[in-house]
């Protein structure tokens, strides 16, 4: 996918676990795992807002555009 989430890197830098982050932003571990593994099709502004608030970062720290990589069209 051309849009990549660098959640695992930001989490590593902030030294926060998946379970703790899921608790802080109020989404399930399964959904956070989908985000972390770049399996999500879309991300809500509310989720992004909660992530930026919990990780004390900007959206650009989490989301990255990787040129040249095709968008995966599942289905």
């Amino acid at each position: 996918m051309a849009i990549k989430l660098n959640l695992d890197r930001v989490m590593f830098e902030r030294k926060i676990s998946l379970t703790e982050l899921a608790d802080r932003i109020g989404i399930t571990l399964a959904n956070l795992s989908i985000l972390k593994n770049n399996k999500a099709r879309a991300i809500r502004f509310s989720t992004l807002d909660a992530l930026c608030h919990a990780l004390d970062c900007q959206p650009g720290d989490i989301i990255e555009y990787v040129p040249g990589e095709p968008m995966a069209d599942e289905d």
Binding site: N31, L32, I34, K39, A40, A42, I43, R44, D75
Partner: peptide
């Protein structure tokens, strides 16, 4: 409907 559901399921 299935495609919409899949999209919705993977919108976090």
């Amino acid at each position: 409907g299935l495609m919409l559901k899949n999209d919705n399921d993977l919108t976090i």
